[in-house]
Design a protein around this nucleic acid. Structure first.
Length: 906
RNA sequence: GCCGAAGUGGCGGAACUGGUAGACGCGACGGACUCAAAAUCCGUUUCUGGAAACAGAGUGGGGGUUCGAUUCCCCCCUUCGGCACCA
């Protein structure tokens, strides 16, 4: 073993040992507590990137730490192999998606091993393996039979030039990314899973997950969006049809001045039949993409249909408008508009000159009304606003003030902005004077009695559309028969295998282009039929992979082994998955449970969402105004003597480049740092150490090579310290009773560090502070020059313990140093975690901060058990304190034991 | 537009339950070693004033609660993540 740190040698040796001994392959073992640590499975894009390094290092640190805590740790890895990038690569490089994907997996598996991740590779799979997706197809058939999978029309982004469906990310500023054509909305039949049947359970389940970040739970709650309201039927005037709207604000019903329907709403279509202008408008509503962000930010446009509805309370007629912000797919495709009390309706009404009514006022207005109308003591009268404004008053001054309050409020609502808060009803006939809940109940009761309305719980959450018009995905196991309609493929005919040896040159799916592949016979009637050529959303595969890892080789989706391992004890992945993936993941777990395959209600008990990896960006403006981005590796940053950044130049030509800020590593900004280069240069442990040290896990991490060098320096110093120590003569055991002051101090710091590191790895998941504590300890042991017997003994205890404490983060280095310290080659994860010696933590004296009026004026060293009076006296006697208390009265002295003394003077 | 985060020295960050703001690392500066460089080691490093002692200011901005606020409350600004077909 060398005296200097050689990462490559050390890492190869440790990795060989782990591989040779199958160190991380695990089985169910009832004698040990289990720990299932799972990192989100990667898309095999071709090369390890820094986001992977970070995600998987966090998972590996937790896994190794938990194993050192005596748990039976499962940490698996696999590949989210279906998806759009393989199709794009196929077009670009003229290679089949399957071949491209599988060769990427080969390469990345090697990179993962080079990082030293402690995976049980015996459980590996790729989601594009028919052995994997056959179970997904079976589950879908089961859901179809249960009525949880169904088909309906829904809208997609349509590129009219390529004649293809586009993903939202392929729509840029309303145009197709490849063709530049204006994207249109098009309705096509698609398959859906009834996640809304589970909406309440998905909402309630969040309360059973204390180990999930509050931000994620809040986002999921808002996404599910439970709201209680009223469904109200409006009859269309001079006709026998009606339309239904849902509102959470029935208290504002008297302020409804129009209703708005989606462009695809049957009433709109009907009105457009003999109205060419309206038909044209509806046509323009088809333009643009389908994403919510785009719909919500587009200019709000509408047109009168000429049709009218009857207000269910007043009998007045209200116009029906078509509006581009109302969508057929969401809710009923129609909304009642209350411009006085809804921002969007207000904006729309002002734009088109539609009437605005004020029917809710705030407490200040109510007070003013009371003043104006003495007979309102028992509540607000029939038309209090109008009555009040023309009423007679005895006190002219008060009346004027009150009138001004009412008028200015009304002016604001009618002309400036909607009043959207809850308040008291006015201008609402019988409902005047009621508050939100009173008005809700009264109006609901009235409409229910009239058969025009019903209370309803509405969900923002929509059913999960799982159809994709793409080739590289799991085929949907359905056959279309002219007589039997949609028929699921029988179990014994599954899997429906996706052909992999295909030419993928254009935009069209090869299985859609191939007339032979789809030909089949109907499983029901035996007649000629056609297969579904859509494939599943790739979220389908990533929604249940965690369960499959527990049951490798099982003939069913999972088997009894799942009961041992599930739920996942620690799940780790990017915050960008906070809603979609994590909601589908929870939903699918409930589907597995209801199919009798798992017994828990939630798939994962603890969740860690790590931040992004970011880096500086550099560019030069091109002649055409576009930007050419340079990789940080090609650029030299210039600084002044104080360290301020003054500029940057391209290393190749020495000419300046512009600094574009710190952004998420991406191809488009060319600011990605290749982990492979870093591993080759510094070793995996240094890369792991930096990615855990540079930022807390949930924050974004800025890659900075100088920082990486600092980590390499730390590991070299640690190595040297151990090597120097083992060259010393043998030492006796530590005898706590025989230690002098400095030896005691070092030993106390060691045990404080053991306590902190364990807490930071386990409870806090604050790895950066754990590393900082270990660095501090190394700084101290480096200055500890005591070569006596007990000095060497304490140093040995410190260094050997540090090897164990660092092992989760830098396992290769620890593996080597453990041997350097005289142990046989072994798996450090099987060593017990160091125990804190409570006696070593004891102190005799503590330092208290002394403040005068909250400002620090000195410190005082006192015995741990010093009485309060002594502390107060010592603090007040400090010269630095007296300078500020002299000539003033001490009003109060606050003593927080072990922390602070605050002397309040005045 | 809606939902969720974040903002602290030149930089990344620490301060865990309201109690000494800036731990740890990077960078910068000074020094030692060296023929020299690299590496390594030692020291300084929030800002302003001051030779120093020391004083004042300071955690995105504005207000509030408290003996005491990076931490709690209200308003605002900026940046980032998600918005259902990127994964």
């Amino acid at each position: 073993m060398s005296d200097t740190y050689e990462p490559r040698t050390v890492e190869t040796a440790a990795q060989d040992f782990w591989k040779r001994t199958h160190a991380f392959e695990v089985r169910e073992d009832a004698s040990k507590p289990k720990f299932y640590c799972l990192s989100m499975l990667p898309y095999p894009s071709g090369a390890l990137h820094m986001g992977h390094v970070r995600n998987y290092t966090i998972g590996d640190v937790i896994s190794r730490f938990q194993r050192m805590q005596g748990r039976n740790v499962l940490q698996p890895m696999g590949w989210d192999a279906f998806g759009l990038p393989a199709e794009n690569a196929a077009i670009k490089h003229n290679t089949a998606p399957a071949k491209w994907t599988r060769s990427n997996i080969e390469h990345m598996r090697g990179q993962f091993a080079r990082m030293g991740f402690a995976y049980d590779w015996s459980r590996e799979f790729a989601t594009c393996d028919p052995d994997y997706y056959v179970h997904e197809q079976r589950m879908f058939v089961r859901l179809f039979e249960k009525g949880l999978a169904y088909r309906k029309n829904s809208v997609v982004n349509w590129d009219p030039v390529d004649q293809t469906v586009l993903a939202n990310e392929q729509v840029i500023d309303g145009r197709g990314w490849r063709t530049g054509a204006l994207v249109e909305k098009r309705e096509i039949p698609q398959w859906f899973l009834k996640i809304t049947d589970y909406a309440q359970e998905l909402l309630d389940g969040l309360d059973t997950l204390p180990g999930w970040p509050d931000a994620v739970k809040t986002m999921q709650r808002n996404w599910i969006g439970r709201s209680e309201g009223l469904e109200i039927r409006f009859d269309v005037a001079d006709s026998d049809v009606s339309l239904t709207v849902f509102t959470t604000r029935p208290d504002t019903l008297m302020g409804a001045t129009y209703v708005a329907v989606a462009a695809e709403h049957p009433l709109a279509m009907q009105a457009a039949k003999d109205n060419a202008k309206l038909a044209e408008f509806i046509e323009t509503c088809r333009q643009g993409g389908t994403s919510e962000a785009e719909l919500e930010t587009q200019e709000k446009r509408g047109m009168d249909t000429g049709l009218e509805v009857v207000h269910p309370l007043t009998g007045e007629t209200l116009p029906i408008w078509v509006a581009n912000f109302v969508l057929m797919g969401y809710g009923t495709g129609a909304v009642m508009a209350v411009p006085g009390h809804d921002e969007r309706d207000h904006e729309f009404a002002q734009q088109y000159g539609l009437p605005i009514k004020m029917v809710v006022v705030d407490a200040g207005v109510v007070d003013a009304l009371r003043e104006l109308q003495h007979d309102l003591a028992a509540g607000v009268g029939a038309d209090p606003l109008r009555n009040a404004l023309r009423g007679t008053h005895t006190d002219a001054y008060d009346a004027n003030t009150a009138v001004r309050v009412v008028e200015s409020f009304e002016h604001r609502v009618l002309n400036e902005a909607a009043f959207t808060e809850y308040g008291t009803l006015v201008n609402s006939g019988d409902f005047d004077g009621l508050d939100f809940q009173g008005a809700f109940d009264a109006i609901a009761a009235k409409l229910e009695a009239d058969g025009r309305g019903a209370r309803k719980v509405n969900w923002r959450l929509r059913d999960w559309g799982v159809s994709r018009q793409r080739y590289w995905g799991c085929p949907i196991p359905i056959v279309y028969c002219p007589t039997c309609d949609a028929v699921p493929v029988p179990e014994d005919q599954l899997p429906v295998v996706l052909p992999e040896d295909v030419a993928f040159t254009g935009v069209k799916s090869p299985i859609k282009a191939d007339p032979e592949w789809r030909k089949t016979t109907c499983p029901k009637c035996g007649g000629p039929a056609e297969r579904e050529t859509d494939t599943f959303d790739t979220f389908m595969e990533s929604s249940w992979y965690y369960a499959r890892y527990t049951s490798p080789g099982a003939a069913t989706q999972v088997d009894g082994r799942a009961d041992y391992w599930l739920p996942v004890d620690q799940y780790i992945g990017g915050i960008e998955h906070a809603i979609l993936h994590l909601l589908y993941f929870r939903f699918y777990h409930k589907l597995l449970r209801d199919a009798g395959l798992v017994t828990s209600d939630e798939p994962a008990t603890r969740l860690l969402c790590q931040g992004m990896v970011v880096a500086d960006t550099f560019y030069r403006e091109q002649d055409d105004g576009s930007r050419h981005w340079f990789n940080p590796a090609e650029v030299a940053v210039q600084r002044d003597e104080k360290g301020h950044v003054t500029g940057a130049v391209l290393a190749a030509d020495g000419r300046p480049v512009r600094i574009g800020g710190t952004e998420k590593m991406s191809k488009s900004k060319n600011n990605g740092v290749d982990p492979q280069v870093m591993i080759d240069k510094y070793g995996a442990d240094t890369v792991r150490l930096f990615s855990m040290f540079a930022a807390p896990p949930e924050q974004s991490l800025e890659w900075n090579e100088a920082g990486v060098e600092g980590m390499a320096r730390f590991l070299r110093r640690f190595w040297r310290e151990v090597a120097t120590h083992v060259a010393q003569p043998d030492h006796p055991e530590v005898d706590p009773a025989a230690l002098d002051g400095a030896q005691k101090d070092l030993r106390r710091q060691l045990h404080e560090t053991i306590r902190k590191v364990g807490d930071d790895y386990g409870r806090r998941q604050s790895f950066n502070t754990a590393i900082a504590a270990l660095m501090e300890l190394l700084n101290h042991v480096g200055k500890f020059g005591d070569m006596s017997d007990q000095g060497r003994a304490v140093r040995h205890e410190v260094l050997q313990t540090m090897v164990l404490l660092l092992n989760p983060i830098t396992p290769h280095t620890s593996h080597a140093l453990w041997q350097l310290l005289g142990h046989a080659e072994t798996l450090i994860e099987d060593q017990p975690w160091p125990a804190v010696d409570e006696d070593a933590l004891k102190r005799d004296a503590v330092t208290l901060a002394v403040q005068v009026n909250g400002k620090l004026r000195g410190t005082v060293e006192v015995a741990v058990d010093a009485p309060r009076e002594d502390i107060e006296r010592l603090a007040q006697d400090l010269p630095g304190v007296q300078a500020f208390t002299e000539g003033k009265t001490v009003r109060k002295v606050i003593v927080v034991p072990g922390k602070i003394v605050n002397i309040v003077v005045g």
